[in-house]
Structure formats: structure tokens, C-alpha cells
Design a protein around this nucleic acid. Structure first.
Lengths: 219, 219
DNA sequence: ACCCGGCCGTATCCGGCGATACAGCGCGTC
DNA sequence: GACGCGCTGTATCGCCGGATACGGCCGGGT
């Protein structure tokens, strides 16, 4: 699908280190490109810490459309939602690059939590972060203004992956308009239109394929 | 604002029992109607288990509009998101009825987790459930079809609060069209229009003020 | 009985998004 | 170099949701 890194999520290094410290105590699994880590509606108690590679997490709606939740790159966790509450998975995770991941099993996690209470805290911090991200996405999705929806995504990416630049923050991750569309619930055409408008307003520019979000576009 | 119970969220009894067992070990706080438990942008490490009363959790957008996340009734938890990740609160919680709540403090929770690993599991199950609910709301919010958005809300309420009825599931919680609008990101008028359409299609009916969701409206 | 405020229903109008179609463009492949 | 494919930029059109306005209904308060 792509050879560029296009992750849209990652955690702080401290949390990642905590989870990585379990290497050796849990299974390491490798997934080929196109292989699924888990599939919507399945029941499973496993969740995954991505060591390397890239995993796309999305929800397939009944009408066939796909909502991309995140692209999980190195140091991201996925699948813990359904692993803990025991209900069928609400999303599908597919490796879109060869991926190496630690596989945790909630059915066997209680001893780990008992032995290492910090793990519990780390997990709680992490799920809390996800909750925050989801809530913020919700906040902007209720708006039907595509400008709003798209800016929210760009700001998030800017916080996670951007580097400073004279014109703002340069976002070192490339998403096609179509991917942005499926993450923001708009059409591909509208993404193009809207980003054009933002460019005219001076809130956006680009350089060698990357998007630069002007600082005045924050908030 | 209302004297009817209008909760939109609750957890399983097992989880509630676990949290209730900490009564005595943590502070109990009472909030008057209209009083805030916490406010957007504040930094705090506390979260709350609602024992009785009703708490509205919402996000105020920069343009002044309010997005209602949930109405937390008895046996609901709120505020744990920002309490664990340490960032400013992303939502505001207001008691819309006199409310009694247990106040947990994440800064003092490590000993509790250490002493009782089941608490960690319970919290993780709970945040996972919230993650699921948020993700499902997201799934339907990306759709711009108000029918889709509103049905998702009704189905959720139906699972949480409804009782069986000859015409489907009777939802024992009353929301005004305006509240539904602010939870689904549509306008009040559209809620009226859409619910009228659903009624015509036979997916909805009502009885003494409560909404009945026909069983064929599931899925 | 009267008024008033909140909520529901409905009409009109306008703007903008989705669907669709097509044209240029960069890039990799053969 | 020629081709093809995927991505971006635009145009047109139809539709539908938001804004706004207004009327009816019900319930509570005085």
C-alpha cells in the first residue's frame, strides 16, 4: 500500500519502555503485509504492542465504508479495548507493512499486574490517552464543517509527528486525501477543496510532499 | 433542568461493586445541582464514581456549542481520562441533580492498586468499555446521515436502559430533541424530522413519553 | 383561569457537501 | 520512451441539513 511511514499514533517513550520491558515474557509475533492481527466481531483476549512495522486499525461499517481509526506505528498499542472488556472486537487491525508485535493476553495478565503495579498504571495512562484522542475526534466530528474535521486531524498529527519549520510545523507523515477523507468522514473531493481553501488562508503550505501547518492554525 | 432520570451511561454491576467497595477509603463528596465536579482545561488527578444523582459530561467547543458526551447516573465513572494522563481536562462535568460521588485520586491510587490488583483490572475493563462506546459513536458520526447518528444513540440507550415491550424495546430515559441534537451533532429540527421519518418507517414508536425502538431497527 | 416558558412540529430558503466525471501529473515498470 | 496507475485538482448537479421563523401543545405557577 505504501512504503512511507504513515503512522498516526504513538505513545510517550516512558510508557513504551514499560511495555517493551515485557519482551521475553510474552509472545513475539510477526505479521506479513496484509495479514490481520484481529478482525471485527471476533472474540479474543489478546492485544498488541507494535515494535516495528505499521498496522491500520479501522471499522468497517455495515454499508461497506471503512472508517480508519489510526495507523499504528512503532510504540503503539492496539486491541486492548476489546481484549479487556471481553466483547467482540469493534475494529479490524491489518498489518500494512511487515510488522513485529508483542502479544499480551488479558487472560494471563493478572499475575503480571500483581507483580508489577506500574504496568497497571502505564496501561491506564495509555487507555486514558486513547480516550482523550477519541473524545477530541468526537468533538470535531459532530461539526459538519470539513475544515474543522480536517484541522483537528492535522493538529493531532502535528503534535505527534511534526518538526518545527519556519512556516509552522512540518508534518512528517504522508496521508493521501483519500485516507484523510476516511478518517474525517468527508469525501475525497471535499478534502482537496478544503485543503485548498486552507492553503489560501495561509494556514497550510507544503514542502517536498509534506504538509506544513502554520502556527496560527493552532488552537 | 429536569427532574426525570436521564442517564445515558452505566457500567455492569460487578464493576460497580468493586468500586463501591472503596467507600470509606476515599473521600465522599456531595455536589449541589449546578455545581461542577471538574472543568475543562483544569488539571487535576481526581476522578469520580457517581453513587447517586446525575452528572452531565460535555465538551464546550471553541465556537460556543456544547457537545454532550454522556449523562452519568448512578454507577457511572467520570473524569478518569484526564486524571490518569495528567493533561488538562477535555470535558466539563456538572451535577444536574444533587449528586453524591466517591472521589478517587490517581496520585494516591498506586498503593490501592498494589493492594488490590483486581481494582486495576476493573478500571481497565471500564476504560475499555468507554473506548468502545466512543469508537462506536465515532463510527456513526463520520456518517453525515442523521438517521444513522440518531439510531446509534437510541440503540445504545436501548442496551443500557430499555425494557422489553411488545413493539420492541422501551427506552426508560427521556431526552429532549435538543439534547439528542447536541449528542449527535445535528440540529434540533433535524432530530424532529428524522425521528418522524423513523416513526413512519415503523422503526420507532412511543408510549407515555418514552421512545420504543422496534426490534427490526437493531443491528 | 390566565399566562408563560419549554418542547415539539412544520414551512421556507440557502449554502455546501456528496456523487460523478474528467483532465493533468508524477512515478514506477517494462 | 511509452504506458499505466494512483493521486490531485476542478466542474456540474442534485439533494439535504442548518438557520430561521412561527404556531400549537402541555404543564406549572400565581
Amino acid at each position: 500500500m505504501s512504503k512511507k511511514a504513515t503512522a498516526t499514533w504513538r505513545m510517550t517513550d516512558a510508557l513504551a519502555a514499560k511495555l517493551l520491558s515485557f519482551e521475553g515474557k510474552v509472545r513475539v509475533r510477526r505479521f506479513a503485509e496484509g495479514e490481520q492481527l484481529y478482525r471485527q466481531d471476533d472474540v479474543s483476549t489478546c492485544f498488541y504492542f507494535v515494535k516495528s512495522g505499521l498496522v491500520q486499525v479501522s471499522i468497517f461499517r455495515r454499508d461497506g465504508t471503512e472508517v480508519v481509526l489510526e495507523n499504528m506505528g512503532p510504540n503503539a498499542l492496539c486491541g486492548e479495548g476489546a481484549a479487556f472488556d471481553g466483547l467482540p472486537r469493534f475494529s479490524t487491525a491489518v498489518a500494512i507493512e511487515p510488522t513485529e508485535a508483542l502479544e499480551f493476553d488479558t487472560a494471563r495478565i493478572e499475575p503480571l499486574l500483581r507483580a508489577d503495579p506500574e504496568l497497571a498504571l502505564a496501561m491506564l495512562r495509555l487507555t486514558s490517552l486513547k480516550q482523550r484522542i477519541l473524545a477530541l475526534r468526537l468533538e470535531h466530528l459532530v461539526s459538519n464543517d470539513p475544515e474543522d474535521r480536517i484541522l483537528e486531524l492535522l493538529r493531532r498529527l502535528s503534535q505527534m509527528f511534526a518538526i518545527d519549520h519556519e512556516r509552522g510545523r512540518k508534518i512528517i507523515t504522508h496521508l493521501t486525501h483519500e485516507q484523510i477523507a476516511s478518517m474525517t468522514g468527508t469525501s475525497r473531493v471535499t478534502v482537496t477543496r478544503t485543503m485548498g481553501r486552507l492553503r489560501e488562508k495561509g494556514m497550510l503550505s507544503s514542502e517536498d510532499g509534506f504538509t506544513i501547518l502554520a502556527n496560527n492554525a493552532e488552537t
